[in-house]
């Protein structure tokens, strides 16, 4: 098991955002995390990556209890996190953005080639010299993913990566994720059900901060509980 959580909970003032979640993610899988807005998805991955301190429970990464580690130590162990709201270094060049991600594990000339490779994979190589803030929104999302790739993570957490991408860009994104999945385990928070159904090996459904169901896309599609709680809106979500 690459990643496990046991009894992971987060209590905000007057609100149980995540309630005692047990979650297991084996190495090499593409896992989608879905659920209605406010189900606690971002809070859950926030606790996994160390951005948010849990109220209770444990996070185990690669056989090691990382609950007490600050975010940067967990990232150094092989996690990578791409932000839901694009959070690139707007005033630095596209290449420097990726180089910052690469330099944590590489030195010297190896950085340059890693940056080139990561930018090439997301198709941003021609824009390497631009300021990141000048990129179009969809391109900034791709830059986020390139930064994730440059870290060569064992676990890549993508928080709503297709939000704001055009139809064609989404297709390219799916191909990209399948390629990356050869080397990294992927945890994907995603609203676009078509992307989820096509990409994920398994799906975990979160509702009111608790795991409602877990299974293959086909199983989830047929699960009555999930349909009642969430997929009632599946046609809308798929259409959108």
């Amino acid at each position: 098991m690459l990643l496990s959580t046991r009894g992971l909970s987060k209590q905000f003032v007057g609100l149980r955002a995540v309630d005692s979640v047990d979650f297991d993610l084996p190495e090499g899988e593409i896992r989608a995390l879905i659920g209605p807005n406010g189900a606690g998805k971002t809070t859950l991955v926030g606790m996994i990556s160390g951005r948010i301190a849990p109220s209770a429970g444990r996070v185990i990464f690669d056989g090691r209890d990382v609950t007490a580690l600050p975010a940067h130590r967990r990232i150094a162990l092989g996690m990578a996190y791409t932000f839901q709201i694009t959070s690139v270094f707007a005033r630095l060049s596209v290449a420097e953005n990726v180089a910052l991600a690469a330099r944590r594990r590489l030195k010297g000339s190896a950085v340059g080639s890693a940056v080139e490779a990561a930018l090439d994979r997301v198709g941003l190589l021609p824009r390497a010299g631009q300021e990141a803030g000048d990129l179009a929104y969809g391109h900034q999302r791709l830059l986020e993913i390139a930064m994730g790739l440059a870290q060569r993570p064992r676990l890549l957490i993508l928080d709503e990566p297709t939000q704001g991408l055009a139809e064609g860009e989404i297709e390219a994104f799916k191909t990209l994720v399948r390629e990356v999945a050869q080397e990294s385990t992927i945890l994907l928070i995603e609203h676009n059900m078509r992307v989820v159904m096509e990409l994920a090996n398994r799906i975990t459904v979160l509702n009111f901060g608790a795991v409602l169901a877990e299974g293959t896309p086909a199983e989830i599609h047929l699960n009555a509980e999930v349909q009642a709680a969430y997929l009632g809106g599946v046609s809308d979500a798929a259409a959108g």
């Binding site: 951005r51 600050p70 940067h72 990232i75 996190y81 932000f83 690139v88 944590r104 870290q151």
Partner: peptide
């Protein structure tokens, strides 16, 4: 200077 939170989430001890 540009974005401390992002640096932390790249694995640096800010």
């Amino acid at each position: 200077r540009e974005n401390e939170e992002r640096v932390r989430m790249l694995g640096y001890d800010t």
